[in-house]
Design a protein around this nucleic acid. Structure first.
Lengths: 161, 161
DNA sequence: TTGAAATTGAATTTCAATTTCATTTTAAGG
DNA sequence: CCTTAAAATGAAATTGAAATTCAATTTCAA
């Protein structure tokens, strides 16, 4: 993922850069969009809409849920956000500024999500694609297990019914 | 995934084996459950509930959607079905009898889902797990791209807005 | 055969995702 | 600084899959 701009966190230029980027798409820069972008970029992790909305509402309770929803969709389209769906089916957003492609380690105990990158994965991907005559555009890999604190908490693992 | 029984497709023993397996869990074997199991095992692929229900309803229109829903959940718990959630967020079920663990190649053109197995993935998984102090129980890997017929249909790729 | 416990299934609820639409705001052109 | 068309907003409504409720029915162990 290549960004046209480097959006620096907590940088006052953000709003101007955003204005330029968004107008290139024939869209309009608004107070709400800039606020949501600002809050979104100044946070880390994989958050669902409710969490993002909660944070936005704390700063500006006048901004509606719908606008946050639509803005996150917009940011995804602009390449500033990335949408993720893990096994629980919930949609989460992550700042694209956080880095390039990576995959996820998910703790079944505490829900913690770790990111990782591995070059071996790419060659593996190509090998499998070639074998099946596919042209791959992207992949998704998630490893589910227990992080070391959670692994030590209980010997017996509780499963969800 | 190790099954306690080998459920053979179209085998009259199915119902008795199921009876045994289910009673071990303190649950009851019912006409509906056996019918749903039978239909489910006698099909392949990754199907959502609506598709499974449609097939069940064709055989026995008296069986309700709720029962199909609950039975698939039950089969998943018993290890006879496996739940899959791909990037579109829809829940799909696949017969566990179809094989052991595998991953998926998904065509963005026609929606076709291919299965693959790759030993390299396992060692990769262990390496990454070790690096992050995780104890991995399972993983999920999906490769998204175009199968060879779809890749040849159009040069330009149409993307979802 | 009996009856407690489990299952069924239509209807309902839940809940996130999405759409609608009347009102407001943006930004480009005077 | 106005005007205005196009876009954005946000409350409310809608959608759709997943999950639950509950009265009626069925199962199965005794």
């Amino acid at each position: 993922m290549k960004l046209k701009f480097n959006f620096k966190k907590g940088n006052a230029m953000e709003s101007n850069q955003f204005k330029t980027l968004i107008s290139e798409e024939g869209l309009k820069s608004t107070r709400q969009r800039v606020e949501i972008l600002d809050i979104f970029l100044n946070s880390t992790g994989h958050q669902n809409l409710a969490e993002i909305y909660a944070r936005v509402a704390k700063t500006n309770p006048k901004i509606g849920y719908t606008t946050v929803y639509r803005t996150l969709k917009l940011l995804t389209r602009l390449g500033l956000a990335a949408q993720r769906k893990f096994a629980d089916g919930e949609t989460r957003y992550e700042s694209a500024a956080e880095g390039t492609h990576h995959d996820h380690l998910i703790c079944l105990g505490c829900g913690k999500i770790l990111e990782f990158e591995d070059d071996g994965l790419e060659s593996l991907q190509h090998r499998i694609a070639r074998r099946h005559g596919f042209k791959i555009f992207h992949h998704r890999m998630e490893l589910y297990g227990y992080c070391s604190p959670c692994a030590h908490k209980k010997t017996r693992i509780r499963r969800k019914g």
